[in-house]
């Protein structure tokens, strides 16, 4: 069973511009990283390789925070 903290810790490794421990789960991505299409692709790739989850572009556009992304992944698979 993956916790939100574990999920966040793996995800933040994907963002070169962030120091470890600095990605907040309840603050919008856009306020913490350069939330452009490249970083969106990196998140999509991370979900596929780590959890085998395909996230639709339109769904990713609605997800604002790590906590919301965690909930999305949890709905698709049992973490």
């Amino acid at each position: 069973m993956t916790t939100l903290e574990e999920f966040n810790s793996k995800l933040e490794e994907e963002f070169d511009e962030l120091e470890p421990g600095n990605l907040k789960t309840d603050v919008p991505f856009a306020d913490q990283v350069d939330w452009n299409s490249v970083n969106a692709l990196i998140v999509m790739a991370h979900l596929k390789t780590e959890y085998g989850v395909d996230i639709k572009v339109k769904d990713l556009q609605e997800v604002k925070t790590v906590a919301q992304l965690f909930d999305y992944v949890k709905r698709i698979m049992v973490l």
């Binding site: 692709l41 999509m44 596929k48 395909d54 996230i55 639709k56 572009v57």
Partner: peptide
């Protein structure tokens, strides 16, 4: 549309 192509290919 890079996001669409990525979504398609990996799924």
């Amino acid at each position: 549309d890079g996001l669409k192509i990525f979504e398609f290919a990996v799924s």
